[in-house]
Amino acid sequence: TTFVALYDYESRTETDLSFKKGERLQIVNNTEGDWWLAHSLSTGQTGYIPSNYVAPS
Rank of each mutant, 00 (worst) to 15 (best):
T1V: 13
T1R: 09
T1E: 10
T1G: 12
T1D: 08
T2N: 07
T2Q: 06
T2S: 07
F3E: 09
F3A: 11
F3Q: 01
F3L: 06
F3C: 05
V4N: 03
V4G: 01
V4F: 11
V4T: 11
A5G: 09
A5Y: 00
A5L: 02
A5I: 01
A5E: 00
A5P: 01
A5D: 00
L6T: 08
L6C: 04
L6E: 08
L6D: 06
L6R: 07
L6K: 15
L6S: 07
Y7P: 01
Y7E: 08
Y7F: 11
Y7V: 09
Y7T: 04
Y7G: 09
D8N: 10
D8H: 13
D8S: 06
D8Y: 03
D8Q: 08
D8M: 01
Y9G: 01
Y9A: 02
Y9F: 05
Y9K: 08
Y9M: 02
E10G: 05
E10P: 02
E10T: 10
E10F: 12
E10R: 07
E10D: 03
E10K: 08
E10L: 10
S11M: 03
S11W: 00
S11F: 01
S11E: 11
S11V: 02
S11A: 13
S11L: 01
R12C: 05
R12W: 06
R12L: 07
R12Y: 05
R12F: 04
R12H: 15
R12T: 14
T13K: 13
T13M: 14
T13P: 01
T13L: 12
T13G: 11
E14A: 10
E14W: 05
E14H: 11
E14P: 13
E14M: 05
E14Q: 11
T15H: 11
T15E: 08
T15S: 12
T15K: 14
T15I: 03
T15W: 06
D16M: 05
D16I: 11
D16V: 11
D16Y: 03
L17W: 03
L17V: 07
L17S: 04
S18T: 07
S18H: 12
S18V: 02
S18C: 05
S18E: 06
S18D: 07
S18G: 10
S18P: 05
F19L: 02
F19D: 01
F19V: 03
K20A: 10
K20L: 12
K20T: 09
K20W: 02
K21I: 04
K21W: 00
K21A: 13
K21V: 08
K21G: 04
G22Y: 02
G22R: 02
G22V: 00
G22N: 02
G22T: 01
G22C: 01
E23D: 15
E23W: 00
E23Q: 07
E23A: 02
E23P: 00
E23K: 01
R24E: 15
R24H: 13
R24N: 06
R24P: 15
R24I: 12
R24D: 08
R24W: 07
L25W: 02
L25M: 15
L25N: 02
L25V: 04
L25G: 00
L25E: 01
Q26A: 10
Q26R: 13
I27K: 06
I27N: 02
I27R: 11
I27G: 05
I27F: 01
I27W: 00
I27T: 06
I27L: 07
V28N: 03
V28L: 14
V28D: 03
V28P: 09
V28S: 05
N29T: 15
N29G: 15
N29D: 15
N29V: 10
N29P: 12
N29C: 14
N30T: 15
N30Y: 13
N30Q: 03
N30R: 12
N30P: 15
N30L: 12
N30F: 03
N30M: 10
T31W: 09
T31Y: 12
T31R: 13
T31P: 05
T31V: 15
T31N: 03
T31L: 10
T31I: 05
E32N: 11
E32I: 12
E32C: 15
E32H: 09
E32S: 13
E32L: 07
E32P: 08
G33V: 13
G33K: 10
G33W: 07
G33P: 14
G33Q: 14
G33L: 08
G33M: 12
D34A: 09
D34M: 12
D34I: 15
D34P: 12
D34H: 03
W35K: 11
W35D: 06
W35N: 10
W35S: 11
W35P: 15
W35I: 11
W36D: 02
W36P: 04
W36G: 00
W36V: 09
L37E: 12
L37D: 01
L37Y: 11
L37V: 10
L37N: 03
L37Q: 12
L37C: 12
L37G: 02
A38I: 02
A38K: 00
A38T: 02
A38P: 01
H39C: 12
H39A: 14
H39R: 12
H39S: 13
H39W: 10
H39N: 09
S40Y: 00
S40A: 07
S40C: 04
S40N: 12
S40D: 08
S40K: 05
S40P: 02
S40V: 05
S40F: 01
S40W: 00
S40H: 10
L41T: 11
L41H: 15
L41R: 09
L41S: 15
L41A: 11
S42K: 12
S42C: 14
S42W: 07
S42F: 08
S42R: 12
S42P: 03
T43K: 02
T43P: 01
T43D: 12
T43L: 02
T43G: 04
G44N: 05
G44M: 14
G44A: 09
G44F: 14
G44Y: 04
G44V: 01
Q45M: 10
Q45R: 11
Q45V: 05
Q45A: 13
T46P: 02
T46Q: 11
T46C: 09
T46L: 03
G47A: 02
G47T: 00
G47Q: 00
G47S: 00
G47D: 00
G47C: 00
G47F: 00
Y48T: 06
Y48A: 12
Y48W: 13
Y48H: 14
Y48N: 05
Y48F: 03
Y48Q: 08
Y48M: 14
Y48E: 01
I49V: 09
I49N: 01
I49R: 00
P50G: 04
P50K: 10
P50R: 10
P50Y: 03
P50T: 00
P50L: 07
P50M: 02
S51K: 13
S51Y: 06
S51G: 05
S51A: 12
S51H: 07
N52I: 06
N52A: 11
N52C: 11
N52M: 06
N52Y: 02
Y53N: 15
Y53D: 00
Y53C: 15
Y53E: 00
V54F: 04
V54D: 01
V54K: 01
V54Y: 03
V54C: 07
V54L: 08
V54P: 00
P56I: 04
P56V: 11
P56W: 02
P56Q: 03
P56Y: 06
P56L: 07
S57A: 05
S57W: 04
S57P: 03
S57T: 11
